[in-house]
Amino acid sequence: MFNSFIDERMKKSALWALILLVVFLGAKTITEFLGWQHIGADTPVVSTISVQGEGEVFAVPDVATLTYTVSVEKAKTAKEAQDEAARVSNLALDYLKKNDIDEKDIKTTNFNLQPQYTVTPINCFTFPCPPRERVFEGFSLFHSIEVKVREIDSAGEILSGLSEAGGEGLISVGSLNFLIDDEEELQEEAREMAIDDAKDKAKALAKDLGVRLVRVVNFNEFGGGQVFRAFEEFGIGGDASTASSVPQIPTGENRISSTVSVTYEIR
C-alpha cells in the first residue's frame, strides 16, 4: 500500500511538471511572436526621392583598332593548314612591324582549326533512310588578329596593305574602329556632369514638393562608356582585298557618357 501511495505521488508530480512545461513553452512562444510584430517598430520611416542624371563629353579618337583574319581551307592535313597559316601570318606581322606597329599592340582574338566534310545527297525510297555519307574535304583554319594603330592617320593605309600582304586572298580585313585609348579622365568628367545634373533635378523636385534634401542614401552608375566610330569591311562593295586605293577615313568624335541614379532622404 505504501508503494502504491508513492507511485501515485510520482504520477501527480510528473503530470504537474508536464503542465508547467507546456505553460512555459506556450508563454515563450507568445512572447516571441509579439516580439516579431514589434521588430523595427521604433525605426522611423524615412521618406526618399530618386532622380536620374546624365552627362556626356566628346573627344577626338587617338587610336584605331582593326581586325584581320588569316584563312586556310581544304588543307590535306592539320599540320599543312597550320604551316600555311603560319606562313601568311608571318608575312602580315612583318608588314605590321615595318609600319612601326609594336608587338604589344597585336593580339590574337580567335584561332579555330577543324576538319571539313560534305554530306552526299541520297534518294531515299524506304524507311528508315540509310545514313548519308560524309566525305572529308580537308582542314580549315581561321586565325583572327586585332591590331591597335597609334598613328591614327596611317590606319587606312595599313588596313589596305594588310589585305595584300598575304597574297592569294588569304587575308580578309574586317572592321576599323576609332577609340580613345585612355578614357578614364573623360569618364570621370562625364560622371561629374551626371551627378550635377541629378543634384539640380533633386533640388527642383524638392522645391516643387515643399520638402528639404537631407542626405544621399543610395547611388548607382550604369551604362556609360564611349560610343566609337566603326567602319565595316574595307573596300567598297566587297572584300577588303579588292580595294585599289586608300580612301580618306574621317575619325569624327567619340561620345563618352555616364548615367547615375541618386536617392535622397527628404524631410
Rank of each mutant, 00 (worst) to 15 (best):
V45R: 14
V46D: 03
S47C: 02
T48C: 08
T48N: 07
T48R: 08
I49F: 04
S50T: 15
Q52T: 15
Q52Y: 08
G53E: 09
G53Q: 10
G55E: 13
G55T: 14
E56P: 04
V57L: 10
F58K: 11
A59N: 06
A59Y: 06
V60A: 07
V60E: 08
P61G: 02
T65G: 05
T65H: 09
L66N: 04
L66R: 01
V70L: 12
V70R: 06
V70M: 09
V72S: 11
K74P: 05
T77E: 06
T77D: 06
K79H: 11
E80H: 02
E80C: 01
A81K: 08
A85L: 08
A85P: 04
A86W: 10
R87P: 00
R87V: 12
V88T: 13
V88E: 07
N90F: 07
L91A: 13
A92W: 03
A92L: 09
L93I: 14
Y95L: 04
K97S: 10
K97D: 10
K97M: 08
K97R: 15
N99D: 05
N99C: 02
N99G: 01
D100I: 04
I101F: 11
I101Q: 09
E103T: 08
K104S: 14
D105Y: 06
D105F: 01
N110L: 11
N112M: 07
L113S: 09
L113C: 09
Q114V: 02
P115V: 14
Q116M: 10
Y117V: 03
Y117R: 00
N123Y: 10
C124A: 11
F127H: 06
P128S: 12
P130K: 10
P130C: 02
P130H: 06
P131W: 08
R132K: 07
E133T: 13
R134N: 12
G138M: 11
F139W: 15
S140E: 11
L141D: 02
L141T: 04
F142T: 12
H143V: 00
E146M: 10
V147C: 08
R150Y: 01
R150T: 12
E151H: 05
A155E: 01
G156I: 00
G156Y: 00
L159I: 01
S160P: 00
G161M: 12
G161I: 11
E164C: 05
G166Y: 02
G167D: 11
